[in-house]
Amino acid sequence: MTPSLRRIWGLMYRHLALYRRSWPRLLELAYWPTLQMCIWGFTASFFSARLGAAGAGGLATTALATLLGGVLLWEIALRSQMGVAISFLEEIWSRNLGHVFVSPLRPWELVAALIAMSALRMAAGVLPAILLAWALYAFDLFAMGPVLILFALNLMAMGWWVSLGVVSLILRHGAGAEALAWSVLFGLTPLSAVFYPVSVLPAWLQPVSLALPSTHVFEGMRAVLNQGRIDWGHLAWATGLNLLWLLAASLLFARQFRVARTKGALLSIGE
């Protein structure tokens, strides 16, 4: 293992050891995705049954799939974003940042470790919800086929750059900015066209919505679920926008890390 990979693994080991010792933390990973799945799943089932009774069975099936697919895929973005931000906050809460930053760990290795932990946290949180959707509502997310991997990767990438922005704000403004770790991506839900097409939004808001990779993922998801086709245009937009946003967030992180080193925030950030 190269020294870089070993340092990345060292930080991952720190978080894995923490989860091994804390069942509430493990439970929390799956709690919200599962709860969301249940609430939206039963709501969708109710409306689906009513539509079916009114003779609109096809529409009912489509509505159920769109809603459940939206819930599950959006959880991928949410959990990925929280995975990075909360893993970083764990270092602040344990007042360990000083030790971490005087080790030879490079900032990009820190980010890589946070992203790797985020992927594991996301899998541990969302997979049970996917299984539950299959067991309770006979909704199989994997039926979308291999394109699901591309949707998931794009949503994970969006979670990462949003959380890099959050971590940058925490570096700049201290632990006072930590509430953003839970709330920031929820604020983007209405703009991401998770449960409805982007055309539903007011015309002036649509360009803002289309600047988000998630909007293109959900438009693409509806194309697969409703029309059985892969919209490569939306996938290309999602990927391109993610690359741009990741670059911008990385530059912001690098700048805020330097500002934190200039202001001495790395020692006092948790206070």
Binding site: R6, R7, W9, G10, L11, Y13, R14, A17, L18, R21, S22, S94, H99, V100, S103, P104, L105
Partner: peptide, 14 residues
């Protein structure tokens, strides 16, 4: 929340 050995192991890797 981590044991002493786990803490030392982390820094051994870092």
């Amino acid at each position: 929340r981590l044991s002493v050995a786990e803490n030392l192991r982390i820094y051994g890797h870092l």
